[in-house]
Design a protein around this nucleic acid. Structure first.
Length: 821
RNA sequence: GCCCGAGUGGUGGAAUGGUAUACACGAAGGACUUAAAAUCCUUUGAGGGAAACUUCAUGCGGGUUCGACUCCCGCCUCGGGCACCA
């Protein structure tokens, strides 16, 4: 018998697949479409990660199964190749980033093909290809033309190590998401995208998509919608008022002072009337130097300064309130001002510290606690019952809120308002290796977009792409590129030198796979109509806030401007799932510094791609984090080899053994159902059980008389088909060896026989008072009476019941009988 | 602090109201071999018993039920998300 040699088998079938059109998605097909997508990788120098393998194998299984079920499947792959690691590597080694990218892409592609994933390589895309980023730039111009891209001088998060501005989303606990350096504040003119205009739709439309509940929650949390009211506080001595956003209007009767953010324009507007303006401005400067991390530190002592000479009036109580500034009030949220009262811990703490008067107006249900609250010994923040609130006394918080808004609204002091935590998206980066922002600044005409016919604005090929210490993009040093003509007046003008963030290329890539070579349009309308939306999108949990949000937003925008057909709806992904991370052995994260990174190449070389594919599916529940275990790989290799040996026995075709046939049909059913639910681990174990039985049956026969496979040709074919999404090379090889026609990958997915699966005989569990006391083999479909009769004959049961009275008998057909005594 | 998810053998895990520990790894013993590797066979939750068998066990404490890993209530631990958000 020939020994199982994955190296030979796998190379052979990969060549056959990729030199033919078996996995090519067909435009203009009458078949139903299925668009399966995985997050395209960033082609780093490290090569493919075993985490990529988990995600790509899972959707490969789904794509292969759908193909066999008669769908026209699109399962594409590409490269998200702009980004810092490539740039940093290029700087260090003195090679151009495009050269580095090309090398990395080649390596990744080679690795991917060795895994046997059924990608349609004819649709490969690369975000750094000018033919691709032409359209990334085109999208930016549309955003600009529609008033959603604007330039603004803002305090940006600056990473002093990467020398780059970061979006709020890229700051994790006050540190740079990429390198972990503490983020600083810098004031800079930046391109901003008005994603906030879409906040409500980005929440609302989640109802129409099939995402994991966890992912929907994350999206909602990130957008941070809160319902409340905008309340006007009239300013004493002038005909003006200040707006405050609140979700707790029920506490307004206890509002005794007002706090504005240190950076609030309120301070500038009323500068002349603030008696201690120097002190206030000094506090503002100090607040600027406090990082967001410290500003949001709960244990920090509260600080603040009163704006002396300024008083406002509480529209509910008509009492005068002093105005303070404190750094815990943030400029960016709500209106940058709050009314303060005894029912907020921070306000409470501040009032106690500076001796500001407090009053309470909400009491909890508890008498003892109420006394403490009334005596200002404790701060009560929850919903409760109103008092000190005139006509609202005795009402519950939730009940009172809409009534108070209505009452104040009738007097012209309030209106309902929804506020979001989501902020506009900082879109400028001061780096070389990104898409140039296609904008031109003219002193006379202001910011103008490049003519669409002049796209793409190519990245100039230069030697110096190192970031500058000044925070300017390295492109600013290339004079003959920067200097250009104004598209409007033709006068001298300068190009924008900042580039786009890495999200820019990845937030619309699913559109380009549909029509990757179109030079006239973003995507052909009829093709988009056929292929969109993406039916199933899988990726990492780390991309379920940012990338998913950005790409949903951009798609909605493109839908609004009719760049994609209206009929497909405004959500790009019908279904989104996420895989759990693959951890290093021992449960710690894989990292180069810990030296515990598993290279898929090494595993493929030693065990074969089919083994690696099966292991990654078998290792545990798909959505769960799981530590790598090379010993577990060995078990999967044994399984693969066992199949190879069993199927390779050259014997005359026999009739499949009855019991084995039944298990095969059950396995066909289970594997099909489990794949849809991404329960790959149990599909594999079901196949293992089948193979164990197959091996047992075959073994007993060969020991006896006729040496036989125990599976006839037709049943072997069916098993190979359900195995093929998991171990495609092995399935093809055995398919060919068995003399079956065409490729296994082109077969129809098998049906199972309902009748055959039904058990003729069942194991009836006999319980007494819920404890298992006997197991009896019985005919299937027994009635309760018949079952009782059989059970009462059992010596064991008779002995256990004895003379005691039987109170009740619970009967579950074909499963169990429970005698209660 | 708030919101999700999880906790089962030595290990990864299976079972979503009905035989707890499928499948796999590891370990122990055996066969084959001069030997090792590979392969095959047997055992493998814990305790008691010569055995038939029996008691206990799904993070902890209660509850519902004929019957609970599974449902409900209260805690503990771990992981993830959000966080002076007004």
């Amino acid at each position: 018998m020939v020994k199982y040699n994955p190296k030979k088998i796998e190379a052979k079938w990969q060549e056959k697949w990729f030199n033919s059109s078996v996995f090519k998605a067909k435009n203009g097909s009458k078949k139903k479409k299925f668009y399966a997508m995985v997050e395209f990788p960033y082609p780093s120098g490290d090569g493919l990660h075993v985490g990529h393998c988990r995600s790509y194998t899972a959707l490969d299984i789904i794509a292969r199964k759908k193909r066999m079920q008669g769908f026209n499947v699109l399962y594409p792959m590409g490269w998200d190749a702009f980004g810092l690691p490539t740039e940093n590597y290029a700087i260090k080694k003195g090679v151009h980033p495009s050269v580095v990218t090309k090398k990395n892409v080649e390596y990744f592609k080679e690795q991917m093909q060795r895994m046997g994933w059924s990608f349609d390589w004819s649709r490969e895309i690369d975000t750094t290809d000018p033919k691709y980023y032409k359209w990334t730039q085109w999208i930016f111009i549309q955003l600009f033309k529609n008033g959603l891209a604007y330039k603004s001088k803002i305090n940006i998060n600056w990473c002093p190590s990467c020398l780059i501005g970061l979006a709020n989303e890229e700051v994790v606990n006050g540190n740079c998401e990429r390198c972990g350096t503490k983020v600083e504040k810098r004031e800079k003119e930046q391109w901003m995208i008005k994603i906030t205009n879409y906040a409500d739709r980005l929440i609302r439309d989640l109802e129409n998509v099939d995402y994991l509940e966890k992912i929907k929650t994350q999206q909602k949390d990130w957008i941070g919608e809160s319902h409340g009211a905008l309340v006007k506080f009239p300013i004493e001595g002038v005909e003006e008022s200040i707006d405050v956003f609140t979700t707790r209007i029920d506490t307004i009767f206890s509002g005794t002072f007002l706090i504005v953010a240190p950076g609030s324009s309120f301070i500038d507007t009323h500068k002349s009337r603030i008696e201690n303006i120097d002190e206030v401005l000094k506090y503002r400067e100090e607040a600027k130097n406090v990082s967001d991390m410290d500003r949001t530190n709960q244990d920090k002592d509260v600080t603040g300064v009163q704006l002396k000479g300024i008083l406002v009036r509480n529209p509910a109580t008509n009492e005068e309130m002093p105005v303070w500034t404190a750094d815990f009030v943030l400029e960016q949220y709500g209106t940058g001002a709050v009314f303060a009262d005894a029912h907020d811990k921070r306000d409470f703490k501040m009032a106690k510290k500076y001796g500001i008067p407090l009053r309470t107006s909400i009491k909890p249900d508890d008498e003892l606690l109420t006394q403490k609250v009334k005596n200002l010994e404790e701060c009560f923040e929850g919903d409760g019952i109103l008092y000190n609130s005139v006509q609202f006394d005795g009402m519950k918080s939730a009940q009172a809120r809409p009534l108070i808004i209505a009452w104040l609204s009738s007097k012209g002091f309030a209106q309902p308002k929804i506020s979001y935590k989501l902020r506009d998206w900082v879109f400028s980066r001061q780096h070389y290796w990104g898409e140039p922002i296609p904008m031109i600044f003219c002193k006379k005409c202001g910011w103008q977009s490049v003519f669409e016919k002049d796209l793409p604005v190519k990245l100039p090929n230069v030697k110096k792409y190192k970031p500058t210490d000044t925070g300017e993009s390295p492109l600013s040093l290339i004079k003959n590129w920067v200097e250009t003509e104004c598209p409007k007046c033709g006068g001298p003008a300068q190009r924008e030198t900042d580039t786009m963030p890495n999200w820019a290329g990845s937030n619309w890539y699913f559109l380009r796979y549909i029509d990757p070579k179109n030079s006239k349009k973003l995507v052909d309308e009829s093709l988009a109509k056929y292929w969109l939306p993406v039916d199933w999108y899988n990726g990492g949990m780390e991309h379920t806030t940012l990338h998913l949000l950005y790409s949903r937003f951009i798609f909605k925008f493109l839908w609004d401007i009719k760049a994609v057909p209206l009929s497909i709806g405004s959500e790009p992904y019908k279904k989104r799932t996420s895989h759990g991370m693959v951890l290093g052995e021992g449960g710690i994260k894989m990292s180069k510094s810990k030296g515990n990174v598993i290279n898929p190449d090494v595993i493929v070389k030693e065990y074969g791609a089919d083994t690696l594919r099966i292991y990654e599916m078998f290792m545990g529940p798909f959505e769960q984090m799981i530590p790598w275990d090379t010993k577990g790989v060995v078990g999967c290799r044994r399984f693969v080899e066992k199949i190879y040996n069993l199927a390779s026995q050259k014997t005359a075709a026999v009739k499949t053994e009855e019991g084995l046939k039944k298990i095969l049909h059950k396995t066909v059913k289970k594997v099909a159902e489990d794949i849809e639910l991404m329960k790959f681990n149990t599909s594999v174990s079901a196949m293992m059980e089948f193979v164990n039985e197959w091996s047992r049956v075959t073994g007993s026969r060969s020991a006896g008389q006729v040496s036989a496979t125990g599976l006839d040709k037709k049943d072997l074919a069916n098993f190979l088909i359900i195995l093929s999404p998991f171990a495609p090379h092995l399935a093809e090889e055995l398919w060919a060896n068995a003399g079956l026609k065409e490729m296994c990958s082109l077969q129809k997915w098998p049906k199972y026989d309902e009748k055959l699966i039904e058990d003729q005989e069942v194991l009836l569990i006999v319980q007494i008072n819920g404890k298992v006391r006997d197991k009896i083999n019985a005919k299937a479909g027994l009635t309760q009476k018949e079952a009782e009769k059989i059970v009462m004959k059992s010596e064991k049961i008779k002995a256990l019941i004895g003379e005691v009275e039987v109170k009740k008998i619970v009967f579950v057909p074909n499963k169990l009988i429970n005698i209660v005594i």
